[in-house]
Amino acid sequence: MLRDVSFNLGAGEAVEITGPNGTGKSTLLRALGGFLPLLSGTLDWTEDGWDDDRTTGETDAAPLPERLHYLGHADGLKTALTCGENLRLWGAMAGHAEPAAGPALDRVGLGALADFPVAYLSAGQRRRVALARLLVARRPLWLLDEPATALDRAAQATLSAMMADHLGGGGVVIAATHAPLGLAGARELRLEP
């Protein structure tokens, strides 16, 4: 359980949640994502000017869980499906009318593996497919739980660039991390036991 946590973020801002193991970094992210109920306190989200690519005609007054991407410890990939199929599914589940996996996979350097079952991929490659999910449907808030796990140096640089682009486009990033993510101007929220 967490208490006395308070912060606010504007468009294009990022916060890195740090702290020793077991202090509640993941819990905080899951509470922000709406997976855990808040016992007390409030969570406000207002939005304007986010350039969305949704074409399904949902209203802009969508609740917060529908405006965020969550990348947890699990990658959310089905090993029996190909990378492209996994990404297109999550694009469609995010409300995107015609999700395209190609550009997102190219961005994380896996463009050649689009028709490859995820079962044959290494842990780092699976993580990169999971990161590509953030790009298939545009959503303003990214909640990332240890996003750099299992990534090599090149992929970590790609992740930093992806986050920088997202912030540049007016997005918000909240990441729980132990290693610095290489985000210029990111604030740090340190949780103590």
């Binding site: 949902e58 529908e66 089905k78």
Partner: peptide, 14 residues
């Protein structure tokens, strides 16, 4: 639930 898909379902408009 094991591969995290269940969490992602909850972020869907459906």
């Amino acid at each position: 639930e094991e591969d995290g898909s269940l969490d992602l379902f909850r972020l869907s408009p459906a």
